[in-house]
Design a protein around this nucleic acid. Structure first.
Lengths: 151, 151
DNA sequence: AAAAATCGATTACAGTTGTAAACTTAAGTC
DNA sequence: GACTTAAGTTTACAACTGTAATCGATTTTT
């Protein structure tokens, strides 16, 4: 396999990608327009992020006349995965359960989503553990008493 | 209520906070030591982040001799909440369900966590919708056909 | 054809972040 | 009491980010 470059997408660049993921193919005008509405960005600002994404190889360009049609070089799923992975690296593994529960409580979910979640949860039951270890202070965790995210 | 200042905690600062949240009270030596082990940071690096967190008012200091005992000025729960809020601002609302399901699939969960999640999910069933709208391209969503995170 | 608009590329620039050394002062040690 | 050590403070500095203006080359409009 080829050498995998790290594809860091910043928060602002994400906004551009969301548009492209949604439209699948977009001109700069499309992108600029959406983000002018949605984020109140100046056209120049959107252009900057488009340019950076192209340079990073996260946006593909297909020439059309003297302009480009832009499309995503990496999938939304994969990118979301990267973001959530980072999130769970960041927070205490002991807090993960409660965090997910909070997310469910706040999310807008479809029937299909609920099913999806039920299935996922069902699958998890087999491999549940008694207590998740805190990974914030490796080796010398004092979580038993303190650190009461989820104990 | 008082004016709420935005408490942006960077990823590296988080590592410091994790230690403090876990230990509840910590000396700089504690923090430096843990992060030297865990992240291979030079003491000076940890010191920088401690200093920045103090300046931001995220770490409290309590003098002890000529040094300080540090403690968290904001709770882990609240901070985790901020991070997940930002996550869900970032990703398409249509993708939220599947994203949570993926997180469940990957997480290490305790029995208690599973219960927590079941309860949260059960509560959600009443208010499930037919289809979650994409919020990436407001007003002109073409998600029906494309953008197949979760359709 | 001249003028105006557009698109992509280049440049700008301040604030944030990661990473750390150096400095200052106080405290413990020999 | 001189020396070493440790803690907190100051300074450094490059890369990354957000935010945009400007420029150069075309294309469209009048």
């Amino acid at each position: 396999m080829a050498i995998e470059e790290k594809t860091e997408i910043t928060e602002s660049e994400w906004e551009v990608m969301r548009v492209v993921w949604t439209l699948e193919k977009a001109t700069s005008k499309d992108i600029i327009h959406v983000l002018q509405e949605k984020k109140d960005w100046k056209p120049a600002t959107a252009k900057t992020f488009i340019g950076r994404l192209v340079k990073k190889g996260i946006l593909n360009t297909e020439p059309k006349g003297n302009k480009y049609i832009y499309s995503a070089a990496i999938s939304e799923e994969d990118s979301v995965k990267s973001v959530t992975d980072r999130l769970f690296d960041q927070i205490c593994s002991k807090a993960v359960g409660k965090t997910i529960a909070d997310m469910i409580a706040e999310a807008t979910l479809s029937y299909k989503d609920i099913e999806l979640l039920e299935t996922a949860l069902e699958k998890k039951k087999d491999e549940a553990v008694d207590e998740v270890a805190c990974n914030c202070v490796p080796g010398q965790c004092k979580c038993r008493e303190n650190h009461n995210m989820n104990c």
